[in-house]
Design a protein around this nucleic acid. Structure first.
Length: 676
RNA sequence: GGGCCCGUAGCUCAAGCGGAUAGAGCAUCGGAUUUCUAAUCCGAGGGUUGCAGGUUCGAUUCCUGCCGGGCCUACCA
């Protein structure tokens, strides 16, 4: 609602400025006044125009206010301070529209979106860092879908890399397990936990004797080659761990559509197809001497000559192609990124380039597909394979992609983008977004609690990085278990009357709410220094606080014998514009109007989150709604309200806020229990 | 050495393209309910936005330099 009104306001202003001053202003800045008494929108444009028009800002503001005319949905324009223009909407009209949930249809950009997230190495249990990735990614998917976009969710599986090889080495060479024994372990619950410990032991084993690294190399080669016993064991391990990851994520309501695996990138020769094109276009160059002698290299992203023209600058694809032809020539050694090693094997960036060409439908090859995992809602998650099922959904070939990958990989991501550009696919490169976020680390205190001995230096650090290699970190399932246990204590104490099953599911919902909210409340650029005390908090700026607000709203309707959903719609017809005006207008209405206004901002916030790839705004919005509602709830006893008209209005308020809060929480992947 | 990110209240974090008196939560202190459930609400204290310049009518936000911290910079993934 708020978003729609803003757009209308901007369009009207643009038209007015053109008419009155013959000015073409491309972006008209619209702000939100610091106080509700000032109105709903604030325009600093008089300041900006002061120089252009050689007039005092205040004078311009007065002219605009006098000449702008009327806009449907808006009440009036006022000059404030030295030249601000404050704009007031018609509160009653906005409230009636919002109650009826008549959102104007927004235009949805054409084309499918592909979001890649999670991408956990299938050799050990998922940890809190992976949780941040998956929760950010899944929330972004929900945001896009809420905005009407069609989205495919992919989880890339590196099943042939060194990490899987390490665990294979652990089972075969340290534990001396047979294939049958490994199979038995893999079938047992929480096999990923077994691998977690083993992986740490393998790392230690390499350190003990460098000669042991030869075993790793041989194992890695066998896996990449395929069709042998070692590769078969690697496959059984990676598939079993992958299943565990899907189960862990399912606990958080996170689902995937397709799991492309590195083994198929290799076996279906994606790289060969990409390699040919990369050589032809000059993106890759062969080094005849220097430290990278015998390698195919590419200019690393961000280094001098890589800053080539984009189609955006010139609008001419051919010019860009020409300009980037000498892409790899004379690259300083330190600016070279090895794509193909001198022994002919390709590194992960190369595979990533091929994979991303496939994503945009530029490779000319496709995966085989088979069903791998079925969710309780009967949705299928597909996996790549060499010879798949005949009938399968069409994946890849999308218009836009978002890769949820931590900030440490931004250089690699940019290199892939530059490769696409160098291949002449500037439009694809422009629609490639590295959804970058910072890591989750542990506070020194948390690390100590987990039993790690810290050096003097470590204790002084703001955080300690988790390390799967060292087995150092908090496992996702362990954290979830701890959250559920903690929530369960509270639920048991508050609701002994509920059945075992009800208490369990309530505790689980609260735990998920706490966890997902916790991972979303920080902005992406902030390193999360994880601490159990903060993560296990259910009070204040937390998921359970927002869930609780919804539960309280629901309770009003339950006790009052109304249905909140239908009440919302009926309110619009039962309450007249005069009724809304009576309760919302003037200073007396400011308090409750603030609540309606906040509720009207959901689609606006969703748009912001997508445009800035920053879901943290959504958490903020949920918290603000919950906070405003909690204060409202305390201040206005609704069911005991004597004035029937007023009671109806207060109920409508609760119903609308409840509806929006449920919507916002759903976008965050947070459900609301029946009681708390 | 080069690239990217961060520095805001005791602690953890916000601040929409440069806007009005820099906001929350936690912690501390003081209050509120025989209720539509206190996982709540109200109030108080707490700030040289790392430092120094610059641009601007206006800077936490943009630019430059410095200080402090993190990450990346492998023929690992």
């Amino acid at each position: 609602m708020y978003r729609y009104l803003e757009r209308r306001l901007v369009e009207h202003l643009r038209e007015f400025l053109r008419r009155a001053y013959d000015l073409q202003i491309t972006t008209i800045v619209v702000e939100q006044p610091p106080k509700i008494e000032f109105g709903e929108y604030a325009l600093p444009l008089a300041f900006e125009l002061a120089r252009k028009l050689r007039k005092a800002p205040r004078k311009i503001a007065e002219e605009v206010v006098a000449g702008v005319g009327s806009i449907p949905g808006f009440e009036k324009f006022e000059v404030a301070g030295g030249g601000y223009i404050n704009v007031r909407v018609n509160r009653a009209e906005v409230a009636a529209e919002l109650a009826a949930d008549r959102a104007p249809v927004a235009e949805v950009p054409a084309g499918k979106v592909l979001v890649e997230h999670s991408s956990i190495n299938p050799n050990k249990a998922a940890h809190i860092g992976h949780l941040r990735n998956a929760i950010l990614g899944d929330t972004f998917v929900r945001l896009l879908r809420l905005a009407g976009r069609e989205v495919d969710v992919q989880n890339y599986i590196d099943n042939t890399g060194a990490q899987v090889a390490d665990v294979v080495v652990g089972f075969l060479h340290i534990e001396k397990k047979s294939r049958a024994e490994i199979e038995a372990l893999a079938a047992a619950p929480r096999f990923d936990f077994v691998c977690w410990d083993l992986y740490a032991r393998v790392s230690h084993w390499y350190e003990e004797n460098k000669a042991n690294l030869q075993v790793r190399l041989a194992t890695l080669h066998a896996i990449e080659e395929g069709k042998n016993e070692t590769a078969a064991i690697a496959d059984l391990i990676s598939v079993a761990v992958l299943r565990r990851h899907l189960e862990t994520m399912e606990r958080l309501d996170i689902e995937y559509d397709f799991l492309p695996r590195e083994s198929e990138i290799l076996h279906l020769h994606f790289w060969d197809a990409a390699f040919t094109k990369l050589k032809e276009s000059g993106v890759l160059t062969y080094e005849n001497d220097g430290k990278n002698k015998g390698c195919w290299v590419m200019r690393r992203a961000g280094t001098a000559a890589a800053k080539s023209l984009t189609t955006e600058d010139t609008g001419d694809t051919e010019a860009v192609r020409q300009n980037t032809m000498p892409f790899g020539l004379d690259i300083a050694e330190e600016d070279q990124k090895v794509i193909v090693r001198s022994n002919g094997t390709v590194g992960y960036v190369g595979k990533d380039i091929a994979y991303h060409m496939w994503k945009f439908g530029l490779l000319g090859r496709d995966f085989g597909y088979r069903k791998f995992f079925r969710y309780p809602n009967d949705r299928d998650c597909w996996i790549s394979t060499t010879d798949g099922e005949i009938n399968h959904p069409h994946f890849g070939d999308v218009a836009e992609i978002y890769n949820v990958i931590d900030a440490r990989q931004s250089e690699a991501q940019n290199t892939v983008i530059e490769a696409l550009r160098g291949l002449g696919h500037g439009e694809a490169a422009d629609r490639y977004t590295h959804f970058s976020y910072e890591m989750v680390a542990l506070t020194p205190r948390c690390a100590a609690e987990l039993g790690y001995t810290l050096s003097e230096e470590d204790r002084a650090r703001p955080w300690i990085e988790v390390s799967g290699r060292k087995g150092f970190g908090v496992k996702a399932d362990d954290l979830l278990d701890a959250l559920i246990a903690s929530a369960r204590n509270e639920v048991d104490a508050r609701h002994p009357e509920l059945s075992e099953g009800e208490r369990a599911s309530t505790a689980a919902q609260i735990a998920i709410g706490a966890l997902r909210y916790f991972m979303l409340k920080f902005t992406k650029t902030s390193v999360i220094a994880f601490d159990f005390k903060d993560a296990l908090s259910f009070e204040g700026d937390t998921g359970p606080y927002a869930q609780y607000a919804v539960v309280r709203a629901s309770n009003i309707f339950r006790k009052g014998g109304f249905d909140p959903e239908s009440f919302c719609r009926d309110a619009a017809s039962q309450l007249s514009a005069e009724d809304f005006a009576r309760y919302l207008n003037g200073e007396a209405g400011d308090g409750i109007w603030a609540l309606w206004l906040a509720a009207a901002k959901t689609s606006y916030i969703v748009g912001q989150c997508i445009a800035t790839t920053e879901p943290a705004h959504l958490a903020k919005h949920a918290f603000q709604l919950a906070q405003l509602f909690s204060a409202f709830y305390h201040r206005y006893p609704i069911l005991s309200e004597a004035d029937e008209g007023r009671k109806k209005f207060l109920l409508a308020t609760a119903a609308v806020v409840r509806r929006e809060l449920i919507r916002v929480l759903a976008a965050m992947g947070i459900g609301v229990p029946a009681v708390m």
